[in-house]
Write a protein that binds this DNA or RNA. Sequence first.
DNA 1: CGCCAAGTTGAAAGGTCTCAACGCTAGTGG
DNA 2: CCACTAGCGTTGAGACCTTTCAACTTGGCG
Lengths: 197, 197
Amino acid sequence: MILGEGEAHTLFANIVSGVVKLTKTLEDGRQHIIGLLFASDFLGRAFRKDNPYFAEAATEVELCVFPAAGFEKLLTEHSGLEHRLFQYTLTELDACQEWMLLLARKKAEERVASFLLMIAKRVPNTGCIHSANSEEIRFQLPLSRSEISDCLGLTIETVSRQMTRLKTKGVIELINYREIVIPSVRALQAAAYESAS
Amino acid sequence: MILGEGEAHTLFANIVSGVVKLTKTLEDGRQHIIGLLFASDFLGRAFRKDNPYFAEAATEVELCVFPAAGFEKLLTEHSGLEHRLFQYTLTELDACQEWMLLLARKKAEERVASFLLMIAKRVPNTGCIHSANSEEIRFQLPLSRSEISDCLGLTIETVSRQMTRLKTKGVIELINYREIVIPSVRALQAAAYESAS
DNA sequence: CGCCAAGTTGAAAGGTCTCAACGCTAGTGG
DNA sequence: CCACTAGCGTTGAGACCTTTCAACTTGGCG
């Protein structure tokens, strides 16, 4: 655990490597992952007494930590820094609004495909792009099925079923539970109901 | 229409009165309202060539408009202004992440109750708080059933059914399609599965 | 080898959607 | 003044998708 929901700030940080998940939970345990942080992303909510979410490492993580004390002062003193954080926050908001559309209107299969696309874009690929097809992408999933379901507002079982369905359709290949090959990004985009971006 | 999705900026503005809705749409017409703007809210996405959403008046709206040309320059010149906009963006992000939890994990009835609660907090109340019960709140819905369903990731019919269900339970009273009385905010919060805030 | 956690698969239940019919309200024109 | 129409909202029945619960499989590890 890095930051507790509703607790006072203990730190701000840049992610150097690894993946951090940000979660929110309802009293009865229903849970959702409201965001994933990858290398170069920023962790921490400035100008607020308590954290609005719970931050937790999803993989091995390296952080570049800023002490909580004085961080906001640092921001106001270096307006260039604040400007960059503002820019970053704006793109975070864009991503969040895009994700709302997914949660509100997409079917399970589209959600899983969108998720894989998002991960493929942000996670370092495990190399070996085959010469036969330059479109092929291969990478490690940083999350378990349970965590994926918490990202997508689905259950573990539904995620699992949609994964095998995508596999059956030939849109993805499963090397093992965590390693995935995407033969054609185009086909995955179609399954995610997303235009190229 | 105030701003078109994907189009270049034409304006930035503060909402003086009324309600503006921000929508995103999938190619096949599936649509979602990613945000509602009330009095004192800010409209426009700085530092980006195109609008990430479609902005449209939901009611009669008064705007305080800033010309698109030079707005970003204005921001960088007056860092106090940028700071305030940054603060505002952060609370917008908080609200967006909170809403994701609703879309991902809440049942239809909880969504409708949460929506009414959100509106009750932000819309000017239509007065007449009855002496008998100081908790009572009465207000006008700024949105049609169809727009509400687009906020909540539901269909019109489901929203309608949950409204009558809440009415049957005595959690809300419907004066007419647009006017609502909440006898006990506490009871509505319980239906929304939200702790006081 | 056996155990445990993680993932998959199946069958049935449940919730939301879809489609269709109906009700209400307001505006229009005879 | 009263049909008539159009738009919005409600209600009902059945289809569809996701969840739930349970059993089974896989993979990692002592």
